[in-house]
Design a protein around this nucleic acid. Structure first.
Lengths: 199, 199, 199, 199
DNA sequence: GATGAATGAGCATTCATTCAT
DNA sequence: AATGAATGAATGCTCATTCAT
């Protein structure tokens, strides 16, 4: 069961610190932030950064990966929720609220110019799968419109997430944006009576 | 007193060519494309590029500016449309369709890491204003929900635009995404009867 | 016949200067000399060096290539020599004399740790071919022993060249080393009477 | 007053292991092999390597030193050989055969870019001295030409050694190379009758 | 003694910008 | 005006060496 090396205490601390610093740095300055800068902010030499993350891409991936893993855990916890529709919308609401406050999530979901490798892709697929579960259940109980798939939902949500980012958005109100999203996603209009409501 | 002379014919041609090439290059490779590469593709020396656009930022702004001006013109043409709601939604549909096909628009609207300066901001404000006109008219004739403002709409639309980009989106169907957006934006549910529809 | 771009006068001057400086630098300090150092010695920025030679390997290859080309020319001039044996030995003598004075030749022939690419390999093959001509002719007129091939000769000569390098050699006398080489190469002993001379 | 304590058993084992690994590593990859790599191959931490060999240069020197000591021992064993000429030539033949098979010897003798310090120099001088003995004796019994000195011989031999290295030599036949060397070194031609043999 | 994490100077390479031709 | 060569600061990465555990 060789646990991938237990890492010394100081090394683990540094690794976590670097991840944290990198997350913040990427979030505020984008991918263009120099690695030396991240190392400096973490108070370590560039070589230490290199020891933990052998390329810039690896560091970015680690940041994204960790974020995705949190989301997967959160989504998984909702599997057993009574009201699937509420669970899904609540999950999305929380994502949006967080994205409106900070700035890392979007890069995590959108991917920038760096190739996301298999490892991260697997976790991303996990997230998609978990949200897919919620979606299907919510569609079954007629809360969410049944004509969209998980790919559509992921695209819409990640779009909304970037829309509410503080960087690009001075005045939009996340609450109102969410209201539009909720209404667009809900099952009622088309599922109850088709598109005739516009008459 | 540089009196903004009308430029020699070849100079004007070069400027237009560079803008075109830069637009394509930024669209396909992002902002990281080297200026030398753009100059090469346009068949001119980097010095020539520099003569027309003194910094990379200036070039990018010019590209964005031109794109925005086109959009402003398009939106303005809809001022006199009979059906303001249809005009607005149609305009958005076209934006989405284009974004789903190419890749420049989002960078133009989202702005990446480069600061958009006053010049471009003015045109961006024009666009916002034109779309705002359409929004207000569509809200007055009860086609678009009245609880959102232009800032909300711009945010949502630019989010959706990035969502349907070919780069980040393999499987989402622009049509279904638009269906959600339409339903989310439409006036009916809440304006006709408030939120009681879910009962 | 697009002549590979005629290059501007200053560019050609810089290219030649860089080659010259690099040759000297590699010769005296080996491949480990930093490119910045070469650029500095040439009085140009590292970017200029990069413009002419996009990688360190390319620069090294260019240096080697040029040297080899000179040798090929020199060897080719001997094709029509009356006395092939004297021509060959004279050519080798000159190589040894130069190697004993400077230090680039050996790296040129020995190749260090950098992979020599096709271009240089072709010129190296040319050199081998030219020397091979001289060898065969010298063997035909019974001046050089007939039991060795061009590969053997090249190995021996390049070995001798490194042997007389000032770097590794404080006290060996190039003249005496050459005497050994001459006697070892000459046809007489074995070709006249085989190995019975040792009796 | 570090009194050169006899070292703990495991320390001695580690030292020997590191030397062995370093020899192989330098031989196959040259001096550019990272110390971390050597430590890894030996299964120890870089700190351990450092304890035994305080600098890279020290490690390299130790490797060379050991190799030279072996050679000195081998050469010394030939002091009492009956036929000094055969002993010398046989010794050289063995060196060449080994160099043609592996790749460490030449670096050991040639020295690359690292300065060989006094310690190694002393052993190298020992080797030179031992071979010098053989040379003088062989010259006295008229087997080896008398016009060359030990410096000449060392240079020639080390040159030949690099010539037959597998790295630089695809097709040269060590046997034929040795034949040339033997004929070049033998006493006969000039010592018996001067240079008149060419008539 | 051993370990392996940390250090940080140093390197090859890139590219926005400037300027001689 | 155009050209394209030159500039040089900046960046990602390496690795010999040091030091805390």
């Amino acid at each position: 069961m060789a646990e991938d090396r237990p890492l010394r205490a100081d090394a683990r601390r540094n690794r976590a610190l670097l991840l944290q610093v990198a997350k913040t740095a990427f979030a505020s300055d984008g991918l263009s932030v120099p690695l030396d800068e991240i190392a400096r902010r973490a108070g370590v030499g560039p070589g230490t950064l290199y020891r933990h993350f052998p390329t810039k891409e690896a560091l970015f991936e680690a940041v994204v990966h960790e974020r995705l893993r949190q989301l997967v855990d959160d989504a998984r916890a909702l599997r057993s929720a009574d009201d699937a529709g509420a669970a899904l919308l609540g999950f999305i609401d929380r994502l949006v609220a967080e994205a409106a406050a900070k700035r890392d999530l979007v890069d995590a979901l959108a991917g920038a110019d760096i190739d996301i490798t298999t490892t991260v892709a697997a976790t991303a697929a996990d997230l998609r799968s978990e949200i897919g579960h919620l979606l299907v259940r919510a569609q079954r109980c007629n809360t969410i419109r049944s004509d969209i798939g998980i790919a559509d939902l992921m695209a819409i949500v990640s779009g909304i997430l970037s829309a509410v980012q503080p960087r690009f958005n001075d005045r939009a109100d996340p609450e109102r944006v969410l209201a539009v999203l909720h209404d667009g996603l809900q099952a009622t209009p088309r599922d109850r009576g088709g598109r005739d409501q516009r008459e």
